[in-house]
Amino acid sequence: MSSDLIVFLVLSLVAIATALGMLFSKNAVYSALFLVLNFVTVAIFYLLLGAPFIAMAQITVYAGAIMVLFLFVIMLLGAESLAPANSLPWQKPLAILLSIILAVEATYLLFNRAGTGMAVVAPDASVNTMESLREMALALFNQFLLPFEVTSILLLVAMMGAIVLTRQEKGAAQ
């Protein structure tokens, strides 16, 4: 058993445990914290695969920026422990059904591919150098410039929408 495999097994246990912790903890702040741990674990998976750039980006963007905003909102609203309001009774069975379908599908694909030698293998080290990062950036800003710009405009519109929706109209404040 190589040391990578041991690290991988431990990390996957941590990842699953934190994901479950996020789902089942009663307090929203604890859920958010479990999610942060989960993101950090995923970042270490990327490091294991030899992709330091994506690992650091994962920590900066998800654990560092997005989850801080989540926590910020949870604390600002004081929504740490909302009463369990079961407003949608059909939601739970549907969620269970869908997740079973997803799990079966994933398992099927995994075992199906494993036989044919198309199983998930770590890319060789040459893919993950800074040189390939340069290649990726060049492709992103030349070949895929239009999708990139469209995505950024989409994000901008979402941001502006949030501002417009929360703005108090003049005279209507009272």
Binding site: F53, M56, A57, I59, T60, A63, G64, V68
Partner: peptide, 9 residues
């Protein structure tokens, strides 16, 4: 990037 990610944590 490491500096950035730790600073954001």
């Amino acid at each position: 990037l490491y500096l950035m990610s730790i600073a954001s944590i």
